[in-house]
Each structure stands twice: as C-alpha cells, then as structure tokens.
Amino acid sequence: MKNSRRSLLSTLLRSTAVLATALTLGTAFAQSGKPIRVLVGFPPGGGSDAIARLLSEKLKNELGVSVVVENRPGAGGQIAAQALKAAAPDGTTLFLSHDHTISILPQVVKNPGFDPVHDFVPVGGFATFVNAFAVSGGTPARSFNDYVGWVRTSGSGKGAVGVPAPASTPEFLVKLVGQKYQLDLVAAPYRGSAPMMADMLGNQIAAGVGSVPDFIENHKAGKVRVVAVLGNKRQGAMPDVPTFDELGLKGFDDLPYYGIYAPAGTPQKFVTDFSAALSRVVAIPEVRDQLTGMGLTVGYMTPEQLATRQAAYTEAWSRIIKTSGFVAQ
C-alpha cells in the first residue's frame, strides 16, 4: 500500500511539474498579447513556405499563442533577413531560413544589409537536406546523362537552368556542372522555387536546381524528374536517383540546413523556451514523417549546434566561392 501511495504521489508531482512548466512557457509568450511572426524569405507554395506552415501550426499548440507565417519574398531571403534585423527583440518575430540566406548570401552580396553572426541569434535547427537537379516533363531525358546528351545534340551544348535565387548554391552547382561536362549552361535566377517550378511545369525552362523539398511532390507525380542529388548518399525519399558523387562531381559533402533565428538582443529565456518547443514538435511522429516525406533529414539542433553547423557550412562554401572566381556584387 505504501509503495502504491508513493508511486501515486510521484506521478502527481511529475504531472504538476509538467503543467507548471507548460503554464510558465505559455505565459512567457502570451505576455505581449501579440502573435509570433515567422518570417519566410520565399513566396507561398515553395518548400520553405510549406515547412514553415507545418511547424507553425504545431508550435501554436505547444506555446499556447498564435504563430503566423509571414512571407517576405525577394533577393534570396535578403528582404526577410533585413526585416528580422529591424524587428524588436521582444520574442514576437522569428526567421525560418535555410543555408542560402544565412551562409551564402552574405558572401556573394557586398551590402546585404545584415550580418547573421552579429544581428541574429540562433534559436534552433531542425533538419538538413540536399539540393537536386531536375528536368521538366517536356524534355526527353530520363537520367542526368540523358540530359547532358540532349543539351549537346539539341542545344549545341547550350542550355538554361533555373535556380531559386541568384548567387546561390544552385547557381554555383550549375557552373560546376557546366565546367565538368563542357556545357555552356546559364543559370536563370527566379524569386524563389515556386515561380521556377511553375515555369518547369509549363515547359518554359528545361531544367532547374533546388532543394529536394522544392521538387519532391512533382517528382512523385511524374511532372518533373529529379535526375541527380548532391552529396554522397542517396535520399530515402527518392532512392533510385543517383548522387552527383556517384556521377563524379565531388566536394559537396557539407549538407545544407534549416534553422530558426531571432533578432540579436532577444531575451535568453525566449530563445531557450522556443528552442525546447521546437525540439518537442520535431519529435512528433506525424511531423517527422511529413518533413521526411518532403525530402528532409530531420534532427533537432540546439542553438549552439545550429551556430556550429552555420559556421562550418559558411567556411566550406567560402572555399568553393573563392575557387569559382565569383566576385561579390
């Protein structure tokens, strides 16, 4: 009997502690009476937008406050990043971004209007992913080698390849592919993956490079064909697609990442509490399955781990950018 009472008391104490933590967390975010804005640097309909809306819905339940996605498309996420820098550091504004805006853009734009190291605070990461090369349904290519042969025969070695943003990882990949296969490939920059995909679906452009989440649904539907992915490991969402490592294009082992950031000066309690909520959300089997289905490799990163990955990826691409001869514009 005593053991039963002891067990019951222990259970009640744990339940009370959990409830108290939840109430404290909810109160911390609800004090301002304002919803949390999650800025996204690309238009609705793209991979980043879909990911942000999935996470925001679940975070709302965790935090007990409204979490609203706000699209600020343009300049490869630069506009959204500048909006984050200008936002009050009061815990009501966050920025969901992948590697391009945080690690690449500050190296390829002379005056980006923000410094991610000094102007932002890492809140937490939740996934890595790879970029992919895809062809539109109007091309006869069924493989990457087919595409190379098609460009050589039908385009005299010339071709345009869509990329979601100028001076981005996809644009550098287009240059490297052109160099390796002796093709005159020109990167055609778009304002995000959604308009690029629209042109690919309309056969206005024969190929595009973007993240796996950008292509996954239309690839599964047979509307576009992903013919190669970066890295040295095939993707679980599309196991039949070879890697560029297999095809002989190496040097892309550092995986792009997704993370959430707050303005510099945001109270540490907010950063800690929101990061903890993010860790709980990405542990939900339904969320993990949906993100995996989008082509992501799901894994929570603490603020410190996100900062470390950001620094390593930035350094890796600094070497690639210098080797390419690209000059910041």
Rank of each mutant, 00 (worst) to 15 (best):
F215Q: 09
D199N: 13
P303S: 01
F270R: 09
T266N: 04
Q235R: 08
R280H: 10
G231E: 03
R288A: 11
S275L: 00
A207D: 02
T272M: 07
L306S: 05
R288I: 10
T292M: 00
P256Q: 03
T272G: 07
S279Y: 00
M196R: 04
P256L: 15
Q305V: 06
E286R: 13
H219Y: 11
L201Y: 01
V282L: 00
V224W: 02
Y257L: 10
Y313F: 15
K250S: 02
V227G: 05
V224Y: 06
T266D: 02
E217A: 14
L306T: 06
S279I: 00
P213H: 05
H219C: 09
P239S: 12
L296W: 02
V229L: 07
D289N: 14
A237L: 11
Q305A: 14
T243A: 13
Y300I: 01
P242Q: 06
V226P: 04
G222T: 13
G236T: 07
K223V: 01
I205V: 15
S211W: 00
R225G: 04
T314L: 05
I284T: 13
L201V: 06
H219Q: 14
P242M: 13
G299C: 05
F270E: 10
G299Q: 14
R309H: 15
L278R: 02
T297G: 14
I216A: 15
K223N: 10
D253W: 09
G259L: 04
E286D: 14
R280E: 08
N232E: 12
D289V: 07
N232Y: 04
A264D: 07
M301L: 15
M197C: 11
D289L: 13
N218Y: 14
T272Y: 07
P285N: 07
T272H: 13
V229N: 13
L201C: 07
S211C: 05
L249W: 03
F215H: 06
F215D: 10
Q268K: 14
R288T: 13
V227S: 08
R309A: 08
G208L: 06
V298S: 00
E304Y: 07
Y257V: 07
T302I: 04
L249N: 03
V282S: 08
